[in-house]
Design a protein around this nucleic acid. Structure first.
Lengths: 237, 237
DNA sequence: TAGAATTACTACACGGTGTTCAGTATCAGC
DNA sequence: GCTGATACTGAACACCGTGTAGTAATTCTA
């Protein structure tokens, strides 16, 4: 019966590892990224801080997997918001993605900080880590929107001057594989769209808009409408 | 001679307070915002950590004054980059501001994190603090650019729908005082321009662009050219 | 110039953190 | 029932911010 007992132990192990993540996420949502302390997690689990080292080699590794989880949930939500809309409604899909992005960020400010800010004291993101993967996934989602708008936005290409060699090879290969019709300028545009969505939300999450306006949603909406217009699209209604 | 000795003591006091800030800034530029520890500062000064409490009531207060200093230096640099250009070259001034903003950020990533990110473990920005003041100053600089472009960009006003009541009273009053001709939509546009400059730079500073491109400057330049074009301006050459 | 008062600073303690490691208790496998 | 792996404890180490009590020096006053 080696297998069953092995499975049993492996299952318990996996459950414990999951519980650590769950508690860590709850602590983060309650007290910010800095509340993710091994001691606090262990305290809630009735364990010792040292015990966690049996599951994650260091706290940064735990944070890394949390980032992966959280980032994935964000991209999932954005993709889910886009999915029900018809593929030819590029303006609607873009606005839906943008609103989903902000809605998630406002609902999970700590998650936003975890992904896009200094996650936690002294943390350095691993080079090829899951954050990079999720970032590529997010960027690919935006790229598909831009690719949909591209036929009508080609006038933007002229002055851009981007080449394939400007991008990281792995990323460029992935994109060229998925969107063969899209020129480098389109990829650059996708990243720029990402930056444009990111900017106002980041300022809002970190409280820099508070002394200026009490309706950041309106501001963001105006910006996104301007964005789809700049893509040569006209939003339905 | 009470005055002179008072002055002498006050001078020494001010010098020590300044030295604390200087060392804190150096520590930050070397090891990130989290390297600002009272113990490390005191160690470099040949003092005890507790001694710093004679100059700053708490570490967050020290960080607050650092933010003020750093933020001021950023805005100073942006304004200095704009100053030599003729007032009617709105496109050039806008691009100059944008480039100065990114150049400063790339040169002082830790400073950028300090201003725009989680400054430091558990730090909460004071409500009416110096960060808010510097933010208003930065925003006012951008607003003056937008005000310069406004006559040619009024077509953007229609769909915006912003009202003065959407903004914080103090901010709105300040802006209306300085730019009487500018409607609410123009102020909203100024903040949006800020967000647009902020987005790509924030992504770059926090390493999210690294897996995508190795020429973030080119990307940023393309975005800023698109921005001035969307303001109805054409950059010189 | 001698004493009083203010100031600057140290020394130490408290509770918090990540991390390591020797030891122990539990449990699967023979 | 014994052996070996696994999970966990408990204590330690080196940090951190923050107070507080005491001390040394410097300034003011008489």
């Amino acid at each position: 019966m080696g297998d069953q007992t092995q499975n049993r132990r492996a299952r318990l192990r996996a459950e414990t590892a999951q519980e650590i993540k769950t508690i860590a996420l709850r602590l983060m949502s309650e007290g910010g990224p800095d509340a993710i302390s091994l001691r606090a997690i262990a305290r809630e689990m009735g364990m010792t801080a040292g015990a966690i080292y049996g599951y994650y080699p260091t706290r940064d590794d735990l944070v890394t997997t949390l980032i992966s989880d959280v980032y994935t949930s964000l991209v999932d939500q954005a993709e889910a918001a886009v999915a029900p809309l018809p593929v030819d409604d590029v303006a609607g899909r873009t606005l839906a993605w943008a609103q989903a992005f902000r809605a998630w960020s406002v609902a999970n400010p700590e998650g936003f900080r975890l992904i896009y800010g200094d996650p936690v004291t002294g943390y350095q993101p691993p080079e090829g880590g899951p954050a990079a993967e999720a970032a590529q996934r997010a960027c690919a989602g935006l790229t598909s929107l831009v690719a949909g708008a591209w036929p009508r936005a080609e006038n933007l290409e002229a002055a851009d001057g981007h080449l394939w060699s400007d991008f990281q090879p792995a990323f460029a290969a992935d994109i060229r594989d998925r969107f063969p019709e899209l020129p480098p300028a389109g990829v650059a545009l996708a990243i720029r769209v990402w930056g444009r969505m990111h900017g106002l939300v980041a300022l809002e999450i970190y409280g820099h808009l508070r002394p200026l306006t009490h309706d950041p949603a309106k501001l963001y909406r105006a910006e996104m409408l301007d964005l789809v217009r700049s893509l040569g699209l006209t939003p339905h209604a």
